[in-house]
Design a protein around this nucleic acid. Sequence first.
DNA 1: TTTGTTCCGTACGCTAGCGGACTAAAGTGT
DNA 2: ACACTTTAGTCCGCTAGCGTACGGAACAAA
Lengths: 238, 238
Amino acid sequence: MTSFPIQTDIRNHLLRTLCAADFDRLRAHLVRCSFEQGAVLESPGESVAAVHFPEPGMLSLVAHAVDGTSAEAGIIGPEGMTGLVLLNGVDASPHTILVQVPCRTLLIEAGPFRQALDASCTLREHLLRYAQVFSVQLAQGALCNAQFTIEQRLARWLLMCHDRADREDLPLTHELLSQLLGVRRAGVTTGLRVLELSGALKTRRGGISIRDRAVLRTIAGASYGVPEAEYARILGGS
Amino acid sequence: MTSFPIQTDIRNHLLRTLCAADFDRLRAHLVRCSFEQGAVLESPGESVAAVHFPEPGMLSLVAHAVDGTSAEAGIIGPEGMTGLVLLNGVDASPHTILVQVPCRTLLIEAGPFRQALDASCTLREHLLRYAQVFSVQLAQGALCNAQFTIEQRLARWLLMCHDRADREDLPLTHELLSQLLGVRRAGVTTGLRVLELSGALKTRRGGISIRDRAVLRTIAGASYGVPEAEYARILGGS
DNA sequence: TTTGTTCCGTACGCTAGCGGACTAAAGTGT
DNA sequence: ACACTTTAGTCCGCTAGCGTACGGAACAAA
């Protein structure tokens, strides 16, 4: 027999901060899932079958050009959800969503999700506020890609990942980071070496341990913080 | 005496494709406005007082970092609207929206806009579909800034601007373009020279005339097209 | 232990784009 | 007609980051 989750046990902030009535609306449809690194939750052009509310861990939204070049555009973790496209009344998007740091999620299928949205304005409004913050994150990512160095963008990315993964050691290869940032693999290696020399982190084969967020924030400079502040303003106190 | 606009006279695609009932809901609140280049429709942290539905012309959504560096993240024209932040139930965003190519808009104040949204699901769904396309545009912009050259990004930008402005001659200085793309002014100059030599456009002091979209598309390559296709798929036929 | 594989460090030559600056041309105001 | 401002073209030296590639280290399988 399946036991439905209890709201206060949930480690996804969006679900945690739903009012009790809205949470109960979703509760019977929520299914706990678990994903390894590399799992694909959404693919370009495919109908989104379900929405995920991640618990600690990290997902990437990856944008693709028609020639196959791609780069990460957004990051999703326990502060958010996947499937914003459904919230906007659309069935599919041209993006990929994939798991970077293994995580559990609470899944709800598209049908019941849509029904719940139709049934509750407050639920819809809650999730739309997150959609707004996420679009701020996308815009900020565009800015960073245009204006900041690899080092700064690495620092920003690691901070954002660390915020969501809730662990110090992140299982990330340089190759993976290079694809997400849209830079060379060797560029990531040298960038990470600088961060390591400054004491911000330790690198291992296949992994990075965050050691000093303050140093990372210094290096990230102005590239980090805007979406985070917006999240706190809009969804932090609820 | 003010005469309220007639739907079929309107040159904003979102308003044009509203169902008649939804349009009538907005109609009495719509006010025609006109803006020069440089006009600011939204500022960081300021409550959004009104939503604009542009007619031919072009607006930029500009993202800012905390240190003042900025770059354009999105483009809005007659296919869309400003004030998505209100649609998402939030009062203000950290972005600026400003006019790049002079245009008229149909304005509706925040209060009546919110009332109309509450009164009509179909209206809200229509506009949310645009919000989805716009977020695809933001993600694609992030990808382009990470992966494409100044020349390609210029070509993409000019195509997107031309799509919206409905005129061949665009009043744009190199300085302005450089701020939007987040590159050097001199970089724009040399980039535009290449585009001009390939016959894509003519430059004048303070302006650019689009001559050959096909050439521009060739140069833009894979950087152009994804949000446009998504718009056609989601909102084109309605 | 050996073999194969994945991942990381590094190096070399090269290019795009930067920062800064100077000049010329095109417009504007008086 | 004049001075002034804005915009555009160009150039120099420089750096970040690219493409490529090689060798070694860590790990996994046998």
